[in-house]
Each structure stands twice: as C-alpha cells, then as structure tokens.
Design a protein around this nucleic acid. Sequence first.
DNA 1: GTCTATAAATAGATAGAC
DNA 2: GTCTATCTATTTATAGAC
Lengths: 211, 211
Amino acid sequence: MARRRRGRSGDGGSREWIFRAACREFAGRGFAGANVDRIAAAAGVNKAMIYYHFKSKAALYREILNDMFVAVAARLDAMASAHTTPEGKIRAFVEAIAREAEARPHFPPIWFREIAEGGTHLELATMKIVGGIVQRLAAMIREGIEAGRFKPVDPLLVHAGIVAPVLLYYASGDLRKRLTRAGLAGADSFGSDDVIAHVQRVTLGTLEGKM
Amino acid sequence: MARRRRGRSGDGGSREWIFRAACREFAGRGFAGANVDRIAAAAGVNKAMIYYHFKSKAALYREILNDMFVAVAARLDAMASAHTTPEGKIRAFVEAIAREAEARPHFPPIWFREIAEGGTHLELATMKIVGGIVQRLAAMIREGIEAGRFKPVDPLLVHAGIVAPVLLYYASGDLRKRLTRAGLAGADSFGSDDVIAHVQRVTLGTLEGKM
DNA sequence: GTCTATAAATAGATAGAC
DNA sequence: GTCTATCTATTTATAGAC
C-alpha cells in the first residue's frame, strides 16, 4: 500500500492523488466504511492534506459523486453527436454508460450504494445532472417515436433496462470472482462487449416493439 | 424512534425485534454505517441483548443476508411449480423477485450494497443459495430451448436483465422521491406492476428471439 | 503546501448484577 | 432473559510548527 501513482503524467498533485485514492476507497467500502487515514495512505499524503484540500470527508465524497455524472453527461453528448438515427443514438447511450464505467471503475459501485442510501449525499446540482441524463434518453426515444420507428415506452423503464444491467456487470466483478472461486457457476463466459451488445439488442427490440 | 412493533402477532420476541430493526438499519446505512445502538433503540431492547442473541454485528448481518436468499429461493420454487410452460416459468421468476422485494424491502438495497462490496460478507452457504437461484433460471431457459421456443441466450445476461432493473426499481424509491422533490422528472408514472410487466415482456422477447 | 500531535466524539463489545 | 456501566479501539477533524 501507500504511495501510489505519484509522478505520473497527468497528475495534478496531492489534491488529485487524494481524489483518486478516495474514489477507490469509497467504491470499496462505501461512505461510512471509508476511512480518511486509509485514503491518505493510499494517496501517499499526510492525512491533514485531505482537510487542506477538502472541507470534510463528506465534501470529498460529494465531489466524487458530482464528477461521476458530469463525466457521464459529457461522454453522452460526445458520443450521441456522432450518430444521426434514433437507433444509433440508443446504441451510443448504452455504450457511453459502459465506457464511463470502464473509465471510472468507482462509478458503478458508488452509484449502487448511493441509490441504496436514497441519494442522501447528492447535491442539488448533481441531481440536476442526473435528471439531464434521463432526459437525454427520453429525447432520443421521443425522436424515434416521431420518426415512426419506436413504439411509446416509458423512458424510465428503458433507462432502468439499460443502466441497471450494465452497471451491475461492472459492479459485480469481484462478486463473480468470489462465486467462481467457491466453485459456482461464476460465468466468465462473456466480456463487456457481449454485455453492451446484449443490452443494445434488448433495448432496441423493446423500443421497436418486436415483442 | 425506539420501541417498535412489540406485541404484534407473529412476533418472536426480542431476537426477532432485533432482526427486523437490523434489516432496516443495514438497508438504510450499509454494514459499516449501521449502528448497533440504533438497532437496539429501534428494536426497543437493550444493546446487550443484541450480543446475547447474536455473536457480533457482522454475524447479525450475515444472518440477514442468508435469510434473504433462502426466502428468494423458497418463493421461486413455490411460484415456479404453479407453471408448466417455459414462458410461464420465466414470468413467475420475474414476479417472484419482485414480490420478495416487496416482502423484504431491505433485500434490494442490502443486495446492491453487498454487490458493490464484492460479496465480502457472504458465507459459503449463502453463496451456494445465490448460485442455485441463477441455476433455476438457467434450467428454465434450457427447457425453453429444448422445447424449441427459446433461442440460446447466456443465462447470466438474462438474469442481469431481470434482477437488475427490478431491484433497482425497489431500491430507488427514496431516490426517486428526492429527485421529484427537487423538481426533476422523478417519474411516478408507473408502479410495481408496470415494472414487472415490462421486464417480463422484455425478457420473453429476448428469449423468443424476436429481435 | 506539508507534517506532528492531539482533541473529541463515536461505536463495537463485554462484565456482572438482577 | 434483561439491564447498567464501562472498557477499548477507532476515527473525523483541527491546532500549530516548519
């Protein structure tokens, strides 16, 4: 442990080392389970530095939450603009969630825990960004309906059908390993690309009303 | 707070009061965030009683985890036996998960958190029960394939497509309330029956290869 | 910006009386 | 089975020197 990834290119100094170590700590142990001493050790800085850069453990956590959704929204816009058809946009939405989960491995577990906690730590600004993400998907569906290619389906049901399985896949990596080690049908039979393709197929099938 | 549901019919005494209060506490705050004093207060018993009935906070939590999956497996068997067709069994699987989430509101949030934690608290016996649940679904799919009604789809992908959205719906109740209060597209446009029907339709559409 | 030392509160667990 | 009192360890947070 201790002293990780200092001196790497793209490093923003102690503040960023702390931020990254905190992402891992909160993802692995949750807000209450996370330990400031451990974050400091993993970041390779003194504990007092955390309070120099951040107001509190809670403020640090809230900043991570906000960063997650800012990144998702940005990636969503970047990927969606490359597609013109409603189908392409839906595919891009699914892939954007998955790619963001890969870029920020703390995203799925932290979000799962925060959902379980009722979103207690979400700032208003962050909630608005979360709302905007759902609205982007709703707009894609509306567009597809107007183009006569999609049947009307509740956007939140579609959203859940995409985000829940994709994030579950990324959040459950350790659990699946553990189940496999225990001699159970752990299933390493597929990878992230299979998950993405499957969710894209299921989602479009639902929207195109082929069932 | 304090002193809840004592003297109700079906009460099993202090041990059960503690167990139920602990379910709520762990669901709302996670394992690390849960507080033994608060559990005792909510159960209306003295804190020492918790250690009289359970070995430790962790042991109490592990017992709750195990109880959850024993109940899911039991409900699954009870509901599946009432159906003969592969389609009916898949529908019953979806409904069983949902009904169990209603019967044990702590199930979705606790399971989400435990997944995020890599299943660290799962005993071997509990993991076997979890594995058995996936195997039950796999058997239903296999049966449908052999009957020429389903296309081959990875059972774990199907499982994720069912369990993730259903549990997300139940686990996100408080979050959705919070988003709505913040003036966002909270979506109270549908209820649990809509979610169940939607997931059943999507799952069968996927298995029947209509996309 | 960085570190040492420490305050101050919280929380899991147990001893022992009744 | 139940309660009081308490031990002990952990942990967030800050004061203050360099």
